[in-house]
Structure formats: C-alpha cells, structure tokens
C-alpha cells in the first residue's frame, strides 16, 4: 500500500500500552516516515501522567488526502502492548482490520474472528537482541511487514529527521530491531 497516485490510501492506527514502552515514540517514528513519503499525517497522543507509568496510547492517521479528524472511534490497525489496551481497543478495530499484539502479560487473548490477529513475541525478541530500547521498533517492524503503509527506507529517513544529530548513531540498532520485527511475522 505504498503511496501510489492511482490508489487512495488512508490508514488509521492506534498504538496502546503502558507508559514507558515507547508507544508515543513508535507513533512518532511512523508519523515521520509518513512525512518522508509525502503523506498527510496526524499524531494524537493521550497525554499527561500516563507518560509516567499509566496507560498511554497514540492515534496515527496516514493518508494521501487531508485528514479531517485526528480522533476516530475505529481503527484499521491496532498495535496493543498490554491487557487494558486490548480490552479497550479490540472492539474498535474495523472488520477486516489488523490487530498486532505482544502476548507477553496478556491473559485474555483476543477473540474477534472478523479481523486479522497477529501475535508478535516482541518482549522475547527484545531480550534476544539485548537492546531493551528496541522493543517498540520490533513491533514497528511487524507493523511495516504486515501493512506496508510506509517503507523501511521512509522509516530510516524519518528517524534521521526526527532524531537530533547526536543520536544518529542509534539508527543502526533501531534498524536491526525493525528487521527483527519483520522476521517475526
């Protein structure tokens, strides 16, 4: 679904989990990748004390047309990192949509049958990689492989734009985590 002038595209994505899991920054990187691909984009976070340990979520909308509402009530794709978020968002995924989740800590598994459900063992993969900060990038890799809303190249260019120069040395580690995530699905 890479941008193609012939095909209209719009993808409404929610990413939700605990504060500290990199939910907002994963959304941000996705948004920057969309920027690099000349798409319209909105990034709307939950904000406030959630950032310090509570639940956090971000809605990212990518489109090749102007985006009306940055807030929607149903999503094409949900990336879910904890039980509360699964409980909250499973019923808000459009029929035919995609649910990506990390089964780590999930005791009540998703039950929808009209959506594509993909479990990504991101926590295990993070430990395997030995890069605790790569967790959200592994999930982003899985998302990119499944939805192809933006390309890996867009993401890497987006990272370059989003990160201050002094953090550019972290980009290869991020790339490795994204590739790892891609290999999991």
């Amino acid at each position: 679904m890479l941008k193609n002038k012939e095909i209209k595209m719009k993808e409404e994505i929610v990413i939700a989990g605990f504060g500290g899991q990199g939910v907002l920054s994963m959304g941000k990187i996705l948004a920057y990748a969309a920027l690099m691909n000349d798409l319209e984009v909105t990034w709307m976070p939950s904000y406030g004390p959630e950032q310090r340990g509570g639940t956090a979520n971000v809605t990212v909308i990518l489109s090749d047309e102007a985006i009306s509402s940055p807030i929607v009530d149903s999503y094409d794709t949900a990336v879910i990192l904890n039980q509360q978020s699964l409980d909250k968002f499973e019923s808000h995924i459009n029929p035919g949509g995609t649910l990506i989740y990390d089964p780590y800590g999930i005791h009540r598994k998703p039950t929808r049958t009209d959506i594509k459900i993909v479990a990504v063992n991101a926590m295990d993969a993070t430990i395997e990689l030995g890069n605790a900060k790569g967790y959200n990038m592994i999930l982003l890799g899985a998302l990119l492989k499944l939805k192809r809303v933006v390309s890996l190249d867009d993401v890497l260019r987006g990272l370059k734009k989003a990160l201050p120069e002094r953090h550019h040395h972290l980009i290869p580690a991020n790339e490795a985590a994204i590739l790892k995530g891609m290999s999991l699905v």
Partner: peptide, 10 residues
Amino acid sequence: DGVIGQMMEK
C-alpha cells in the same frame, strides 16, 4: 485546546 496543542501534524 489540548488536542490542537498536543497533536502533531505537518
């Protein structure tokens, strides 16, 4: 409002 202040757009 908080939406316009906190959201990112181009």
